[in-house]
Amino acid sequence: MNTLSTDLTHITSEAQYNEILKTQENVMICCGRMGPMCIPVYGEMEELESEYTNVKFYDMLFDLPDAHVIRNLKECSGFMGIPFTIYYKNGQVVKATSSIQSRKQITEILNEKFGK
């Protein structure tokens, strides 16, 4: 298995990740597994996709070798809980969270960093 069972667009390689960050202005990536703390975040993202048309939403399987691009981000150095959720603006990390996040927490970040 190299993708997650979600309705989000999956990132499966470092090259794809780099291309997305190079071409997209506002990006949210949730990197996790099909586990209890991750699934609710994917669910929120799936529903927010149509609401935040200015943001591109992706997921990435935490155990993919190429997911080191997220696992090794300096912004994630203290993280000890999945999923790692990263928000990028013009290719730069503007916010990173670990573990489960509520819709309120996610939308607060989306509104603050990207607007609506």
């Binding site: 597994r33 586990g35 209890p36 703390m37 991750c38 203290g78 993280f79 000890m80 809980g81 999945i82 969270t97 670990s98 573990s99 489960i100």
Partner: peptide, 12 residues
């Protein structure tokens, strides 16, 4: 939470 404090053993 998520930085050492966890509520899910299978996740973390």
């Amino acid at each position: 939470a998520g930085k050492g404090v966890s509520y899910c053993a299978t996740c973390d």
